[in-house]
């Protein structure tokens, strides 16, 4: 071997070994000691980093879980109760099963029911339109149809129906992370309980104008007549500022309110079709899947 090669090998090897030794001691000195359970929990989480738990990302949620004494205030809506169960096992804590929630769009003012009064020419987002002109129909609270909610959903669970101009939630994919609720400038979307076998009832309107004004603007508006309040045997419906609201904790899904609502503002989801034929043409049943077709009756499993 020539001397050049020999000395090159020796000197570079020495540099390498010295660097390795220095790095070893530096690594030991600056080692970050982390609870290995954080990694375990992060593995168990869905990894969507959607923020639905209220923390900036899944790792932050995992850290919060490890720090917490109990898991009652912590919940991952995407992973749900199953995921929280796994986390509870890792941490040796108790966890209560939480009701599954789903996003609900409280507006039934489709293009055919709520005519446009002006043409909006501005930037095509709900947030900007809301700030600029409030609405291009007679209803200042109704859906603006640009789909800010669709853009923000990370789970492909909400889509705009081009025929009705209203967003539809795919309840199989919805994780109730709440992103669409915040994105909607009109506050139309609400997280409500999925309900037994997915059955739920809600008022599909957020208009607070007096009944005659609301009705003129939209045929499906809640006019604040109060018939539902009177019809409800469980005192679950309240009327405030010309708008009815159903308390989901008190509602027993008897559907008496749906039957008496004169405008079809109250919506029932996933119920099996009634035995008697529908008498009022404006009432309808919609189903939870995000299909972009005309609303039709849902033929799901029989009631037991």
């Amino acid at each position: 071997m020539s001397p050049v090669v020999f000395y090159t090998i020796i000197s570079l090897s020495t540099v390498g070994i010295v660097a390795a030794v220095i790095l070893y001691f530096v690594a030991q000195r600056f080692k970050v000691v982390e609870d290995p359970r954080i990694d375990q929990i992060e593995q168990a989480l869905p990894g969507a980093n959607c923020g639905g738990c209220g923390f900036p990302g899944c790792r932050a949620f995992a850290e919060a879980c490890v720090k917490a004494d109990d898991l009652s205030q912590l919940f991952c809506p995407v992973g749900g109760s199953d995921c929280m169960g796994v986390i509870a096992k890792i941490l040796n804590l108790q966890v209560q099963a939480k009701e599954k929630l789903v996003a609900v769009v409280r507006c039934e003012g489709s293009y055919d029911k709520r005519p446009k009064t002006i043409r909006y020419d501005g930037a095509p987002t709900c947030a900007i339109m809301h700030q600029a002109v409030s609405s291009d129909t007679g209803c200042p609270n109704g859906c603006l149809s640009w789909g800010d909610c669709v853009v923000v959903c990370r789970f492909d669970a909400i889509h705009m129906n081009p025929v009705t101009g209203l967003p539809e939630v795919d309840e199989k994919k919805c994780t109730a992370c709440g992103a669409c609720v915040t994105a909607c400038p009109k506050g139309i979307i609400e997280l409500r309980k999925m309900g037994p076998k997915g059955c739920r009832i809600y008022v599909g309107c957020v208009n607070q104008d007096p009944g005659s004004v609301a009705r003129k603007a939209c045929q499906a508006a809640c006019i604040g007549c109060g018939l539902c309040v009177k019809a409800c045997p469980f005192d679950a419906i309240s009327l405030e500022k010309n708008l009815a609201y159903i308390d989901q904790d008190k509602c027993k899904l008897c559907r008496k309110c749906v039957a008496v609502c004169p405008t079809g503002a109250i919506v029932e989801i996933n119920f099996p079709p009634k035995k008697q034929p529908q008498t009022d043409a404006t009432r309808h049943t919609t189903h939870g899947e995000g299909e972009t077709t005309q609303p039709k009756r849902h033929t799901i499993q029989k009631k037991t």
Partner: peptide, 12 residues
């Protein structure tokens, strides 16, 4: 481009 629409929104 609707420059001012977005800037107005951004300002708010």
């Amino acid at each position: 481009r609707p420059l001012l629409d977005y800037i107005r929104y951004g300002k708010s």
